[in-house]
Design a binder for these strands. Structure first.
Lengths: 108, 108
DNA sequence: TTCATATTTCCATAAAAATGGAAGCATGGA
DNA sequence: TCCATGCTTCCATTTTTATGGAAATATGAA
């Protein structure tokens, strides 16, 4: 689960949370750096990690590079945790229904 | 989110996944070590991490120490990811209903 | 008591991850 | 062509995490 490692760092979780409400347009790297007060190299490092985890995508527009959240992996992560880490507990989305066994829609 | 860090390691994720289906009784440390072929010190180290993350609990029974999954934190983690990391995507458990805003039942 | 078992803590070492300055590359404007 | 801007890669350094032998602790049994 690379996604877990991807999110298991304060800076990266913060980056991802900034990107979530920004939707497909995303946010330019510079803006992200400004908001979190990160030196460019550090920012780039974490964005690369997120990218390798498949959590964000990159798109160049003029001089800026826009990053956007990629929900598919996030969805898969939640599905994985729900399926594999919650047996017999209150974690299931709906404990009454037999729970569709392998995953919901996917493809954001 | 300490739970993320807790699970973001192969060994710890494997440990937790062994504990999930074991329920409240849990599994003795020794058994866990045998199943994952871990030297005692390494095992203890990771179990301590999981415990600090609130993901597992400890209980002594005779000479053995039993570890059991603690679902509350897991539940909170899933709720957190669903609330904060999925806006406008297919991640929500049920995209039709208005989604109860702060959490489901809790207390496993 | 003494001993075996189960597990932890101690601690030195090794490996992995994060940090950020400096140099490099791409794009667009003058 | 030259320059400014926006970002990335390079890389040396620091910090954090993981590893596992050895010693220590707790429990129960002989």
């Amino acid at each position: 689960m690379a996604a877990l490692t991807g999110l298991a760092h304060d800076t990266r979780l913060a980056l991802f949370r900034l990107l979530v409400p920004a939707g497909d347009k995303g946010i330019a790297a510079g803006d992200l750096g400004a908001r979190l007060k990160l030196p460019p190299a550090t920012l780039s490092f974490h964005l690369k990690e997120l990218r390798h985890a498949g959590l964000v995508s990159q798109r160049r527009q003029g001089r800026a590079i826009y990053y956007a959240a990629d929900y598919a992996v996030m969805d898969a992560l939640i599905a994985y945790l729900t399926e594999n880490c919650c047996q017999g507990s209150a974690c299931a989305p709906d404990p009454t229904s037999p729970r569709p066994h392998k995953a919901r829609s996917r493809h954001a």
